[in-house]
Nucleic acid binder design. Structure first.
Lengths: 249, 249
DNA sequence: TCATTGGATTTGTACCAACATTTGGATGAT
DNA sequence: ATCATCCAAATGTTGGTACAAATCCAATGA
């Protein structure tokens, strides 16, 4: 158990207690003062150890409340469900909605529509030239009033300009339908998935605790002529999401 | 720009310089002493700021070398390629290998085969009872001698016992072929993907820098009777990997 | 020429002290 | 009973000091 430095030893000890289940989700860790006393180290050393656990996402700290073991029950996302939803006449139900409501939790969305110069990541996927604008539908999804994830869909201006701008509500409900009506049904998806630590803006918007990475999910939709017509960028707090794909041969 | 605390202000300022490209990958940040002097703050405050950037994965620190902006060029993983490889007569090339070698990088693997009681996560996917053992093939993959990711495949003992244990080399090369030969070809895959911060063991094994999350990729393979015959758990350092799926309707 | 040594620089660890901020819970008034 | 107020407890921030550890680089010596 003994590691090199004092604070690593202390962190290791506490971590063990958490992984072993001795300290379950929600359990209180000793206060900083207690740990100073019981381990005969300075407060700085205690805080170094606790910070390590915090950045690992194991514990959460707050004044007066103390340090507690974090809990996490992730929600499962099924990116393939959207494909089924594209079939003509399929229910318009969104995958995210059904997944959440099954657990009897209350959900809501905040939607904004803007015209912006998209980040390079998106621009290249939409095959836009440097500096070209696109329409973006920004969504912040909330579960029980708490921010859950974000989903920003970008559309090339020359495709959606006339219709959707004139009728924002159209694009706000069922972007896929609108694309279809415009003669650009999505026939193919390319999904890219990676993870990173959140930017401070994301931390703030999604109310992330320290030590929570985000999974970035980028879906590019192509029409029958293989022209990219939509890029959806979702930022998913890693402690609340898993993604599932099913493959058959 | 001004945020609440001193160290956040400093972190924010440096972060800005990085995101704006003013400090590109590999660029040196000022030393702690310089920052103390130029910003008129204590070393503690400087270190808090730098640590924040480090846990965000933006910079890397080392004695004497100083603090430098990190670079990352992720490799793309294509989980669907394994499906194609399962077709009879398909090339035995592993997706990971082709992806890496295309860039002229040298790669190697370290493989061990053990019989263990798998973690609950794996056990439930293999429908094992509490405490049941399984065979595991542990792989650590290296690129240019540097650890790149891990891939541990678990197999139910009652399926692989007789063959593979007697002939470890079999299972070490082309586990899929062996399963097929045993009458358990994989007909269906279920892939689960999530992310989290690494455990200290993983940090050590994969030589991760602070602020690097890992993506966990779990593939469960089912035979024609829908019996799970293999669970592959990959741990992918997030700064080095992206995952791509392609869907067609 | 080449290996070794040693100093200087830079980050890492550990300690102490003081005050700020947040908030759970008790207390008291309505 | 309910609500507002206040106190105390806990973490958060910032200042300081001292020494350790790593490592680049130049000086030294075989």
């Amino acid at each position: 158990m003994a590691r090199s430095t004092l604070y690593e030893q202390l962190a290791s000890e506490l971590r063990q207690a958490i992984y072993s289940g001795e300290l379950g989700p929600g359990a209180q860790l000793p206060t900083e003062s207690d740990l100073m006393y019981t381990h005969k180290v300075s407060r700085n050393t205690v805080r170094l150890a606790l910070r390590e656990l915090e950045t690992e996402g194991l514990v959460s700290r707050a004044p007066r409340r103390g340090t507690i073991v974090r809990d996490r029950r992730p929600l499962r996302m099924r990116p393939q469900d959207e494909l089924a939803g594209l079939a003509p006449g399929a229910p318009r139900r969104e995958a995210f909605l059904t997944a959440v409501e099954g657990e009897g939790r209350r959900l809501s969305q905040q939607i904004e529509v803007h015209i912006v110069v998209p980040p390079e990541e998106v621009a290249s996927r939409l095959r836009l030239n440097e500096g070209d604008s696109a329409m973006v539908r920004r969504r912040l999804r909330l579960v029980d009033g708490q921010p859950y994830n974000t989903a920003d869909s970008y559309f090339p201006l020359d495709i959606v300009r006339d219709s959707a701008i004139a009728h924002p509500p159209d694009i706000m409900q069922g972007a896929n339908r609108v694309l279809e009506a415009l003669g650009h049904p999505q026939k193919r998806f390319v999904d890219d998935i990676w993870a990173r630590m959140p930017t401070p803006e994301e931390s703030q918007r999604l109310q992330l605790e320290p030590g929570t990475p985000v999974v970035v999910f980028v879906r590019t939709g192509y029409d029958p002529h293989d022209v990219p017509v939509r890029v959806a960028v979702s930022v998913l707090p890693a402690d609340k999401h898993t993604i599932r794909y099913e493959l058959e041969r």
